[in-house]
Design a binder for these strands. Structure first.
Lengths: 146, 146
DNA sequence: TTAAATGCAAAGAATTTGCATAACA
DNA sequence: TGTTATGCAAATTCTTTGCATTTAA
């Protein structure tokens, strides 16, 4: 387990946004967004907490939850529900996710890729699809072939 | 809270399938599938248990869970994950769901409606979409306009 | 009669909350 | 100095499990 980055300039950018929204910049928050930014893929709260604790052993799980909630309220972070298992968090804008039910691999893709479907659902059911907040489940290439 | 149907012929049909699969037909199981079949929409385990208990007060929540698991293993029932909140159960074949994040309304639709998307995801990512096991979230017509 | 299903209690996983203390602005 | 954020413990919600007992086949 590696400690989260602390010198990524994106951390400061995000913290500036937090401040602008009336929030406060704390050590725990810097670590948490550092861990979020490091990640190659989306992460659960437990995973984030484990990384954060390598640098700040006292950061409590509830602090991670609350920090992510705050960041999400400001629009800096999103979480996605994945079938069973815990929610996945990631920085940045809403986008659709494919999640493999076998190996857990997450594939991000562009919202535009769902425009046709979105239009179809809007016309047919009057339903406004929110692409970011749920994952589409199935099998990834590797798991589908095996 | 109304007691579940007990004279729906579909109950017997489903029980026949249970028997064929080596399972046993019990009073609890008849009540549970009765409740499932009555429903206008998909239901949570708690909702089902409440209905079932009007006729069989001792049917335990864990029995409802286990019965639904068994029925799902045989392929008679499916459950769908809906963002936060508990899973929704329904009889019958896998199909996609739209769930309103505001009012909880569930819209079922035909798997074929997603064929284009499916083909696209397969080509682009090698991803095999399983349409039944997750809900696509958004706002229904009423909630979107208000 | 015997394997499967049930009731009950308890545990488990994921998340939220209350409250006193600490620390940012 | 006055909130806001944190740590901690405890509560909540949804679901699963172990075990002794009951019951369908």
């Amino acid at each position: 387990m590696t400690a989260p980055t602390t010198d990524d300039p994106r951390i400061d950018a995000l913290m500036a946004e937090v401040r602008r929204a009336g929030g406060r910049v704390t050590a725990a928050r810097r670590l948490i967004v550092g861990a979020l930014l490091d990640a190659a893929t989306h992460q659960t709260v437990d995973e984030l907490a484990a990384i954060v604790r390598t640098a700040g052993p006292d950061v409590h799980l509830s602090t991670v939850y609350r920090t992510l909630d705050s960041l999400e309220a400001i629009g800096l972070v999103e979480h996605t529900h994945v079938g069973h298992g815990p929610a996945l968090y990631h920085v940045g804008r809403m986008h659709p996710h494919l999640v493999c039910e076998k190996c857990g691999a997450v594939i991000d893709f562009e919202p535009a890729q769902l425009d046709t479907l979105r239009e179809e659902l809007r016309e047919r059911f009057g339903f406004e699809l929110h692409v970011g907040h749920f994952a589409m489940l199935g099998h990834c290439r590797d798991c589908a072939s095996s």
